[in-house]
């Protein structure tokens, strides 16, 4: 039977090491997923799933395999699956990362890989958290252009240097990896959090924006930038490589230079 189904031998000579999907090394890996379903139990538990994955696979692929082939009740968020939408931030082996940007081969596959929801936000089910507190802080810093000048008929021009000033903080995809890695945010959830400050920074230092003072006043709150303890967890967690702690420090400096 199998001889009949086999592909006829290729007539093209390929040098060794070229092509062939089967050449990607495969390995077995155990994913230890944090499960929580308030309709069944108030307690969260760990579930182990053993899957065979390939060297090109990401944690998200393993989660897909689990959800599609093993246990359809495993719940997580993902949209674009390519590191742009920021939906699938989760705590993988104790660190906040995007499941779609973390290759399994880069993790220690000899031990189970732990996958948990991001910390500090209320868990709704399995890996899904309620992002509302996160977005509320984001909304409070007014993350949109406010310009009191005349409406230009063309685009608002800006020099390359002025654009460069806030380039780093334009990269934010609002995945909440930074805010949910911040120990100050974990304590009581009152802190505005790195993501809100990063998005305020993006407009505070934009030469076209006129509401920088208002945003600085908002972040001068007792739950604002002064609660930052510069632990650099946010900078380490950011999947876009934004220098978050530096952005927070720049906002602190801006408040100081305005007030003192």
């Amino acid at each position: 039977m199998s001889a009949e189904l086999a592909e006829p031998a290729s007539k093209i000579e390929l040098p060794a090491g070229v092509g062939g999907g089967g050449e990607i090394p495969s390995f077995d890996v155990t994913l230890r997923v944090r499960r929580y379903n308030p309709e069944v139990s108030e307690d969260a538990t760990w579930d182990d799933f053993k899957v065979t994955m390939y060297g090109t696979d990401r944690v998200l692929d393993a989660l897909h395999k689990i959800k599609w082939e093993m246990d359809g009740s495993v719940s997580f968020r993902r949209s674009c699956a390519h590191g742009v939408c920021g939906s699938d931030a989760m705590r993988i082996n104790g660190r906040n990362r995007l499941a779609c940007k973390t290759l399994l081969k880069d993790l220690d596959t000899s031990k189970p890989i732990t996958v948990e929801p991001i910390k500090g936000l209320p868990v709704e089910k399995d890996l899904i958290v309620d992002m509302e507190p996160f977005f509320q802080s984001f909304r409070e810093v007014m993350p949109f252009l406010i310009n009191r000048g005349h409406e230009p008929t063309k685009e608002r021009l800006q020099s390359a240097e002025d654009r460069e000033r806030f380039d780093d903080t334009t990269k934010c995809i609002l995945c909440a990896a930074c805010t949910s890695s911040c120990p100050v945010f974990w304590t009581d959830g009152q802190y505005f959090g790195p993501a809100a400050i990063v998005n305020a920074h993006r407009f505070i230092f934009d030469s076209r924006d006129d509401a920088g003072d208002m945003r600085l006043e908002i972040l001068n709150d007792k739950e604002g930038v002064w609660r930052c303890r510069t632990t650099f967890n946010c900078t380490e967690a950011c999947p876009r490589g934004i220098q978050v702690t530096q952005a927070i420090a720049e906002v602190k400096q801006a408040i100081l230079s305005r007030k003192v």
Binding site: P133, G189, N220, D221, K222, E223, G224, R227, I255, K259
Partner: peptide
């Protein structure tokens, strides 16, 4: 997560 109103003043700063 609800913040108890804005704190006026610059004490934290």
């Amino acid at each position: 997560y609800r913040r108890s109103g804005g704190s006026k003043g610059n004490f934290e700063m």
